[in-house]
Nucleic acid binder design. Structure first.
Length: 84
DNA sequence: CATTTGACGCCAA
DNA sequence: TTTGGCGCCAAAT
């Protein structure tokens, strides 16, 4: 595991229920404001059940993708009470 | 080691 | 406002 991915996992894991962070925000929190793309890449290839990667969405307000399907991601967020 | 890929983001038309 | 193109970074090929 690279330090970068470790930080990404740590940050995502700390997202409280009902809250969401954008890829950009995560990138900033890990120290690389421009690595928004890399963040998505890491979450995509390393999906662990321990990490609520469904709490990470695009800065545009779109939901982005999800390894279990975007529908599942949206469903989860709605269940957690996330509303636009 | 060099190139491509991808759950992104911002700016210019 | 919506679309297209460019930039940026880490991992996979």
């Amino acid at each position: 595991m690279s330090a970068f991915s470790e930080k990404v996992y740590a940050v995502v894991k700390e997202i409280p229920r009902g809250e969401v962070l954008t890829y950009k925000q995560v990138a900033i929190l890990v120290g690389n404001p421009r690595a928004s793309r890399a963040v998505g890449n890491i979450l995509n290839k390393n999906y662990h059940s321990s990490i609520p990667c469904h709490r990470v969405i695009r800065s545009d307000g779109k939901f982005g993708g999800y390894n279990r399907g975007e529908e599942s991601k949206i469903k989860l967020l709605r269940q957690e009470g996330y509303v636009i």
